[in-house]
């Protein structure tokens, strides 16, 4: 099954095309330029360079968050537009579930961390070493203290990765102490091939989302909603 994957939820803009057993191509940019300007040209190049007829694409996998709200929408609006135009289904993948695949070879804890602004991170905990990453702690938006408490509670080394390291490496290292491990730069960030991998898994497990029923995984209310809820409390 030929699947196209997109990810624009973090600083990386990435597209990939693959069958279940084969990654045909993956183009990624981590240059903090507007994803809106980069995504479609990357995709056009990917299709042209692989020589694949786009009408042969059978589905789209896209990250639904957490991450930058705008980034989530650029990726999802593009994926849904492709789905509508090509007449193929979409499968939604969370950014953290996709990232966890980069730590699949580690038998210990794997902790993807994304910069959530406002001195917070999006994170979740997984266990690697099996066929698929096993979720140990669900995704949440939280402070670094909450993250370090969660990791310490498990009392075993954790492998950190994700763009949250760019800003919080020092703090994470001191918070996790001797339990801190880090995935090297070549495999630390979001890539669409990870989205492809998780997309295939979800597709096989429960099938794609019904048409247009793909929900963004913002994980956080908009500022206006948050203030409104506080006031009405």
């Amino acid at each position: 099954m030929l699947l196209l994957a997109l990810d624009t939820t973090t600083t990386v803009c990435s597209v990939a095309l693959g069958d279940e057993g084969k990654l045909w191509a993956e183009y990624s940019l981590n240059i903090s330029k507007t994803h809106s300007q980069r995504l479609m040209p990357l995709l056009v190049d990917l299709i042209r360079d692989t020589g694949v007829d786009k009408k042969k694409i059978e589905g789209i996998a896209v990250t639904t968050g957490p991450g930058s709200f705008t980034g989530i929408r650029i990726g999802m609006a593009t994926a849904l537009g492709l789905s509508q135009g090509l007449g193929v289904p979409v499968v939604g993948v969370t950014t953290l579930d996709a990232l966890a695949w980069a730590g699949i070879f580690s038998p210990g804890l794997v902790c993807p961390v994304l910069d959530a602004r406002k001195d917070q991170v999006y994170f979740a905990l997984y266990r690697g070493g099996g066929d698929v990453p096993q979720e140990v702690e669900p995704a949440r938006a939280a402070s670094l203290e909450t993250l370090s408490e969660t990791v310490s509670r498990h009392g075993e080394p954790a492998l950190f990765l994700g763009d949250g390291l760019d800003r919080f490496r020092a703090a994470l290292r001191s918070a996790a102490g001797s339990l801190y491990r880090e995935i090297p730069a070549f495999s630390r960030l979001n890539r669409a091939s990870l989205v492809l991998q998780e997309g295939f898994r979800i597709w096989q497990e429960r099938g794609p989302a019904p048409a247009y029923a793909l929900n963004p995984f913002y994980l956080r209310l908009s500022e206006a909603e948050r203030r409104f809820q506080e006031k009405s409390r």
Binding site: S36, M40, V44, K54, A77, T78, L80, G81
Partner: peptide, 19 residues
């Protein structure tokens, strides 16, 4: 509004490419 515009622009580009 930039966020609003981006949804339409992204959808339109994807449709233009796929069709």
């Amino acid at each position: 509004l930039v966020g609003s515009l981006l949804v339409g622009v992204s959808a339109a580009k994807a449709l233009s490419f796929s069709l």
